[in-house]
């Protein structure tokens, strides 16, 4: 475990804490895409299939349970909590996310390291995670004013995979970890999708003004 990896996981965890904080304290999920949250549940379910068959460390198992539990909890809040579900921006969260699932399945069936169920589903989870943020980014562009916690949530979510890329570079250079096309390309695409969000987020932070994405 290197520093980049730990920072990446902590940033990812922090993004989820910020989102839960927003939903629980403000009792609102305005500006949050339920579709992106649902895609994350699928990502974790298909990536952590080895949760009960392979043991790496307490940390690894604990984090998998936390990510699974919180992502399912967030979807539950947004779908079924009597107060929160009223605040869901249903009319604006219009991205056709089933299309992303289909694309990822097809790509995982075409490009994978081994053709077995676990490996193909793991590969699917990497492809799906790379594009899972799209419904959320589209929703942000439609939102007139993005509240601070939502902006922070998306920023942290983008930052975590950027830190993972540094972790892969470190492992490749220092631990002579083998070159991994699939996670690395997926991670690069994932981080690249945040590029313009990062630009506007940092600009709004520097100019101390409200975050606004161009429509």
């Amino acid at each position: 475990m290197n520093l980049f990896r730990l920072l990446g996981d902590m940033t990812h965890l922090l993004s989820i804490v910020v989102l839960l904080l927003k939903i629980r304290t403000v009792k609102s999920c305005a500006g949050i895409s339920l579709k992106t949250q649902e895609l994350y549940v699928i990502v974790f379910l298909t990536r952590y299939l080895d949760l009960f068959t392979k043991y790496y460390s307490v940390y690894n198992t604990a984090m998998k349970l936390v990510f699974l539990g919180t992502s399912i909890g967030i979807v539950w809040y947004m779908r079924y909590h009597k107060v929160v579900k009223q605040t869901y921006s249903k009319d604006e969260d219009t991205f056709k996310h089933y299309f992303l699932i289909l694309l990822s399945i097809i790509l995982a069936l075409l490009i994978h390291r081994a053709f077995d169920v676990i490996e193909v589903l793991w590969t699917f989870s990497l492809y799906l995670e790379a594009v899972a943020i799209l419904p959320q980014l589209v929703l942000l562009q439609k939102s007139r004013n993005i509240d601070t916690l939502t902006g922070d949530y998306v920023f942290l979510l983008g930052a975590y995979r950027a830190l993972y890329i540094l972790n892969w570079v470190y492992r490749f250079l220092m631990e002579n970890h083998k070159f991994r096309w699939i996670p690395w390309i997926s991670g690069l695409v994932q981080t690249a999708l945040y590029a313009d969000f990062f630009y506007y987020y940092i600009k709004s932070w520097k100019n101390r003004e409200k975050l606004k994405l161009p429509a």
């Binding site: 790496y56 460390s57 690894n60 793991w122 996670p183």
Partner: peptide, 10 residues
């Protein structure tokens, strides 16, 4: 060992 290293990430 290889498998262990391979999928030890989240």
């Amino acid at each position: 060992a290889k498998v262990k290293k391979e999928k030890d990430e989240l």
